[in-house]
Amino acid sequence: MTTTPEPAEQPGETPESAAGAATAGRDPLEIAADLVDDVAEELEPAELAAMDRLDQPRRLLLVHAHPDDESIGTAATMARYADAGAGVTLLTATRGELGEVVPAELASLGPDELAEHRAQELAAAMEAVGVADHRFLTRPDGTGYRDSGMVWLEPGRAAAGDDVDPRALVAADPEEVARRIAEVVREVRPQVVVTYEPGGGYGHPDHVRVHEATMRALVLAAGGDERDEPGGGVPWQVAKVYEIVQPESAVRAALRRLAESGAPGAGDPDGPLPSVVVPDEQVTTVVDGTEQVPAKIAALRAHATQLTLDLDAAVPALRLSNGVPQPLWPAEHYRLVHGVASGPFDADGRETDLFAGIAPSS
C-alpha cells in the first residue's frame, strides 16, 4: 500500500500563517462571503430564517382576533409603515365564524361559509393597505381557532355568550395559544408589537384572550420562562409593545357632535364608554395616518359583512351590527406598555412613531 505524504511544513510556518497564505491576494469581500457561508452551514433552518429577518431594519407585528378588527383600529398605521418599507405582519386569531352579518343578503351564510367569506374580505383589506404578510393563528395540529361569539350587554359593551364551541379560541388552553403566538414572534422578530388593551376594546372574549395570550407570548418568545418554552425558533425580545386605545376627550367631543347632528344610534356623550377609551394622559403615542385615509377607507369597505360606513355624516363614522356610530379619525392612538417612549413628540407630548428610539425613521 502506498500513501501520499502530507506537505512538509516549512520552517517557521504555523497553521495561522498557512491560512493567511491561502487567502493572500483574494478579494476581501469574497473571503467574507466564504466565512458567512461556513457559519450558515452550521445553523439550523430556524436560525437562518431569524438572520434573514434581521435584514429588514423595521418590523411590526399586529395581533388581532377577527378579520375587520385590524382595519377598524390600525389600518392607517399598517398602511403608513407598509408605505415606508417596514416589514408589517398581521396575525389574526380566528376567521370570525360567528360575526354578526350586517347585509341582509348575506345573513344566510353559515359559520364555515362566513369564515371563508371573511378570509377573502381580509385579503382584500390587506391588499388595500399594502400588507403582504397576513396569517391566521393555528393550533399545533394545523387547524384554526374558531370565533368564540359574543352577546351585547349594552351598546358598545360585549361579553361571552352561554354556548361556546369547544374549538373556540376561549375554550383552548391559554398556554397553548400563547405558545403559538410566541412561535410567530420568534419567526417574525418584530421590534414592535401592537394588540388590544386588557378589556379587548369593548369586551369581546376573543379580544380579551388575544391580549392575554399576546402578553404571555412575549415572555415565552424571549425565553423568559424555562418551564414552558415555545416549540423551536430563536429567542427574541420585543423592544416596544403598544395597546390600541382612544383618547376620552376626543371620543366624547365626537359623540357630542354626532348627537347634536341627530345621527341615529349616537351614544350619550356623557355616559360610560368602552374600555378602548382611556383618559387622555394614558395615550402615549399617536400615528398620523392622514395620507393613508383612502387606504383605510378601502380596507374598511372590504369588510362588508361586518360594518357600514357613513362618510357624509357630521362626524364620519362606521357602524357595526349594533348600529352605534364609531368616529373615524386619520390618527390612530396607542398606549405604550413596554419599552421607552422616544421623540419626536407632538404638542401634547406624545410619540409620533412606533419605532422611535429603536430603529431608523422613515
Rank of each mutant, 00 (worst) to 15 (best):
P103T: 14
I181Y: 02
F345D: 09
P5A: 15
R95D: 02
D147K: 00
P45N: 10
A253E: 12
A76E: 09
S249V: 04
A159S: 09
V324S: 05
E9F: 15
E175I: 12
E154I: 00
L122N: 07
V276K: 05
V88L: 03
R157K: 09
L122M: 14
E212N: 08
K296E: 01
T4F: 07
A115F: 00
A347F: 12
A107L: 09
D133V: 06
L218I: 11
S362M: 12
S261M: 07
T14I: 12
A317T: 13
A266M: 03
L336A: 10
Q282H: 11
L218P: 06
R139W: 00
R146W: 04
R216V: 08
H64I: 08
F355W: 07
A24M: 14
G203L: 00
P316Y: 05
V286C: 01
E332T: 09
L106F: 10
A119L: 10
A124D: 14
A263K: 07
A86V: 11
A347D: 15
E47F: 01
L328D: 01
L336Q: 07
D141Q: 09
A253C: 06
V102G: 03
P103R: 13
G25I: 05
V170C: 01
P205H: 02
D162K: 13
L309A: 11
V102W: 05
R186T: 07
R227L: 08
A253K: 12
A314M: 10
E260G: 13
D312T: 14
D141R: 07
E260Y: 09
G99N: 04
A125S: 14
G233Q: 13
D353W: 04
M126N: 05
P190H: 02
R335Y: 02
R26N: 06
L318S: 10
G203C: 00
R189Q: 11
R179L: 15
E41W: 05
N322D: 15
E121Q: 10
L35T: 09
V245D: 00
Y196F: 14
D280Q: 07
A217N: 04
